[in-house]
């Protein structure tokens, strides 16, 4: 079975060393997913695999036989941006823009994780449903680094989207 990226099937690479990140950028031509560290330390390469966020640099493309991958391009386009993309724009949740696709993919999946009741280090009561507090959002987004320092605006953007859907 091929790998499906943003609803389009692609053949997997011959070279088993190709990471999912490099496959997206160099083979599938989807450069919206960024390489910041190639070691799972910065989150710029975050994509959704079967709906769950992962660091695509830490995963080999050939291991994704049959998987459905959604990248930033799959979440929305300049003509039809997603709610989260619009919120980032509205709140200036980015500056240089390089960590931004990862932040947006991560935030999109993160809200679903809270809705599904997944706890985090910031969750006070592990028995109860996690609340959408600033601390929860910050903890769950801490794998996505932003060196420009747009964190305060990113959190505002995420809260905006969470508030609208709540």
């Amino acid at each position: 079975m091929p790998i499906t990226i943003n609803d389009t099937p692609h053949d997997l690479p011959d070279d088993p060393r190709v990471s999912l990140l490099d496959f997206l950028r160099s083979h599938a031509g989807l450069t919206g997913t960024k390489k910041g560290c190639d070691h799972g330390q910065c989150g710029a390469c975050t994509v959704l695999v079967n709906g769950v966020r992962i660091n695509s640099c830490l995963s080999l493309a050939v291991t994704h036989d049959g998987d459905e991958v959604t990248t930033i391009e799959g979440l929305g386009s300049p003509v039809s941006p997603s709610e989260m993309q619009m919120a980032f724009l509205r709140h200036d949740g980015f500056q240089c823009g390089y960590c931004t696709p990862g932040q947006i993919c991560s935030a999109t999946a993160m809200l679903k994780e809270i809705a599904a009741g997944w706890p985090s280090d910031a969750t006070e009561d592990l028995e109860a449903s996690p609340q959408l507090t600033g601390e929860e959002i910050r903890e769950r987004m801490s794998g996505n680094l932003c060196r420009c320092g747009a964190y305060a605006n990113i959190v505002a953007a995420i809260r905006d989207v969470a508030g609208e859907s709540a």
Binding site: G32, P78, Q85, M86, F88, L89, G97, P101, I104
Partner: peptide, 8 residues
């Protein structure tokens, strides 16, 4: 901004 938030 729209280009940056859509990865384009």
């Amino acid at each position: 901004g729209l280009l940056k938030v859509t990865g384009t």
